[in-house]
Write a protein that binds this DNA or RNA. Structure first.
Lengths: 213, 213
DNA sequence: GCCCTTATGTGAACTAAATAACAATTGTTT
DNA sequence: AAACAATTGTTATTTAGTTCACATAAGGGC
């Protein structure tokens, strides 16, 4: 596994590159330079070239990168050929919105099961996704070989559910809860803290000028 | 403005500290150490101490930090006394969810106006927030002295709306669009890219083990 | 009031990431 | 086929952030 020495920061940018390359390809563009990419995704051109170089020499000097080849390459790295099944835990406002969000359209993931305690929606289909009782969490996760969960539950029950998810064999949690979860070391947590994003933005605005945060 | 030399990374953690301190205070805790905080928020204790030290000597050696004093202090830094008015641009699935999200409860921000083109909801109240036509964007932003916008519109119109928002005097945009926006240098953009978060999580899971991303 | 324990605040070391700068190489034009 | 223009890949540099490690100071017990 040669990808082991790819910097975290680079890994986080890969999906962004991939998405933009797809756009270019759809628009019929065949070649692109690091400078053009830089304009679009707002990372320094040198950063982009370095990111790419971790995977070998993907471009041609004096020419740039071949859009299709590059996209195919990143597609493989991002496992675009295999569809990941994702569980949505907590079908409240945000959960509902994420069900409708349709990750599938723009990524290799699909929400294939949702869980809640609300009897009104348990055993219904929401936005094409079956909603199960939380009691069935472990069974469904295992049956459907789900290894990523999106956690959109109230804070007080978040840690408990994280424990159950981890025990059930989930390897990643996209955590919309304000809580910083405790998980075993083989589970990866990605925090999406909306209040924090907004607060941080406000802080920067109040204390400094503009520019990217 | 002494805060000018506070690292970006520190600034991003401030709201997290603040929230956790509030929790502690509500629970009646009067003192806390960097180690206890570390357990809760999952940043290294040394990082926490250094973060705090940018604002002076807030703790007592051998004792720790006074929860109430610390919270008050951070509250001021985060401008918790002034309520920021926020506009929500785009009342789709995600927009609706954010309207119900109630930032107000846990932060100093409140969505005070929403905008959409959908005639069915224009001039209605959604989750307590008036929905205006996009035609009124400039006027309302100016009248209500809104300086932050949450952008939850389809990608194709995102840049155009960002332009209008910037021109209307907004200083910050919380961008839920996959597009990397072009804005004047006095406007700050905070990107929340849900697809990217999920994709990144998947990449890490597929290529390495667990731990924080 | 003295000793011991605890936990801060910070200088120094380390690690990660971004940027600059340019030689090397390719395509294109004449 | 030679000269030119463009753009990569990478070495070196700079910047940012994290962590270590410990002297310093405060509180609490005896």
């Amino acid at each position: 596994m040669a990808e082991h020495d790819i910097p975290r920061a680079t890994a986080k940018r890969l999906p962004i590159y991939y998405r933009y390359l797809k756009l270019l390809l759809d628009a019929g563009t065949t070649r692109v330079s690091s400078n053009e990419l830089s304009d679009a995704v707002k990372f320094d051109a040198a950063t982009i070239r370095r990111d790419f170089s971790y995977f070998g020499a993907l471009g041609k000097r004096g020419y740039g990168y071949d859009v299709k080849a590059l996209m195919t390459f990143f597609g493989e790295i991002l496992n675009q050929d295999t569809l990941a099944s994702v569980a949505l835990v907590g079908v409240g406002n945000l959960g509902q919105a994420l069900l409708n969000f349709n990750f599938h359209q723009s990524s290799n993931a699909r929400i294939s099961a949702a869980f809640d305690i609300n009897e009104d929606i348990v055993n219904t289909i929401q936005a094409g996704v079956p909603v199960y009782s939380l009691d069935d969490l472990e069974k469904q996760i295992s049956d459907q070989r789900i290894d990523v969960a999106i956690l959109t539950v109230p804070a007080p029950v978040a840690q408990d559910l994280a424990n159950r998810l981890a025990k059930a064999g989930v390897h990643g949690i996209l955590n919309f809860t304000p809580l910083r979860l405790d998980v075993p070391s083989d589970v990866r947590v990605q925090n999406v803290d909306l209040t924090n994003e907004l607060q941080t933005l406000l802080y920067f605005i109040n204390n400094f000028g503009g520019a990217e945060a």
